[in-house]
């Protein structure tokens, strides 16, 4: 297990240059074009003196290299700084406000996609080569190519507007109160035994999660299918079959367990896709998460917030892939580091 610990440590250390590289990229690219947060918020009516004064307050009048060093030094201290526009709130607070919404959406979308992936994948693996198999293969390709805003719009239009089954924008009804503990509405409402809140939050979550979930499910369909096929060819399955164990039990209890490992490794990569897809989903459904937040702040060139958000995303991706790797290392003893 020592080797595993070394591995984890290396991985953790490797995230530092990754964050650093992305941060630098964003830092400099953002300053190429004219325009900065000061001019974006004071708008058109302010006097140049007023603008200069505000720039000075934010340190934007310093030379670029100086700003860069200051910023890196701040990040090193674990401080993401303060927003440069209205409110001048700490970036970490802003992220803490917005991230739970994205987390909740991604978890639910992930659940939806794995659920669809498992059902379709297992089904396809039991009938390789049949029409159903081909159909599901086509599904997996088409699903990934479904443009999220289009799918979202169609669902909004049919289920939301025409049939009035589900709400189509936002996270909860305005009159429903959910006390914030974690910021995940489903969890919070359960913790406070708030059934009305739970159902309400769930209803708002359904369409966005289904949209994002369906788009990402295709990958799981094929992955589950191919790894199931592989496992089903193995000797221990034959042995089980020979012993007369029911096929359903073999599939669900034995084969699926083993087929799940590749699915798990895929999750690290998928998480990145999930976050990217979440931006489009959030925009389509007015979901108050990180994606809409980032887009909004980019428009105002809120330097610190955009940089902080990118750092946060990078750390998040690194952390998730690390966790996935560790879990993988534990459950699959064949892997040695």
């Amino acid at each position: 297990m020592v080797s595993l610990r070394v591995y984890i440590l290396t991985r953790v250390l490797l995230t530092i240059p990754m964050v650093f590289i992305l941060l630098s990229l964003v830092f400099f690219v953002m300053r190429i074009l004219p325009g900065d947060p000061v001019i974006a918020i004071v708008g058109m009516k302010a006097s140049p003196e007023h603008i200069e004064r505000l720039r000075h307050e934010l340190g934007l009048d310093k030379p670029l290299w100086r700003q860069y060093i200051d910023y890196i030094a701040m990040i090193m201290r674990g401080d993401l700084g303060r927003s440069m526009i209205w409110g001048k709130r700490p970036v970490s607070t802003e992220i803490w406000d917005r991230f739970p919404a994205t987390l909740e959406l991604t978890i639910c979308a992930f659940t939806v996609s794995v659920l669809i992936g498992l059902v379709t994948g297992v089904f396809a693996s039991t009938k390789p080569g049949t029409k159903a198999d081909v159909g599901l293969r086509l599904f997996s390709i088409v699903a990934y190519s479904l443009f999220i805003p289009l799918l979202g719009m169609l669902l909004q239009f049919t289920l939301g507007v025409k049939l009035k089954l589900l709400p189509v924008a936002g996270r909860k009804s305005p009159l429903v109160q959910i006390d914030r503990i974690t910021g995940l509405y489903l969890l919070d409402s359960l913790l406070t035994l708030n059934l009305v809140g739970f159902v309400d939050a769930l209803r708002y979550l359904l369409l966005p999660s289904i949209t994002l979930g369906v788009v990402l499910s295709g990958v799981y369909t094929r992955l589950v299918r191919s790894s199931m096929l592989e496992v089903l060819r193995e000797d221990f399955i034959r042995a089980l079959r020979a012993r007369g164990i029911p096929e359903g039990q073999i599939l669900l209890r034995h084969a699926l367990k083993n087929a799940f490992i590749p699915v798990l490794t895929m999750m690290g990569l998928q998480f990145s896709l999930l976050l990217a897809g979440a931006i489009l989903t959030e925009t389509t459904f007015s979901w108050p998460g990180m994606g809409t937040f980032l887009l909004e702040r980019i428009e105002y060139r809120d330097y610190t917030t955009v940089q902080g958000t990118i750092v946060f995303y990078a750390l998040l991706v690194a952390m998730v892939s690390l966790i996935v790797d560790i879990i993988y290392a534990y459950i699959d003893p064949r892997i040695r580091y």
Binding site: V29, S272, L275, I279, L280, I310, Y313, V317
Partner: peptide
């Protein structure tokens, strides 16, 4: 680093 980062978000930025 670039590879691991969510593509669309990078492109957006």
């Amino acid at each position: 680093s670039i590879y691991a980062f969510p593509g669309l978000i990078l492109a957006i930025a």
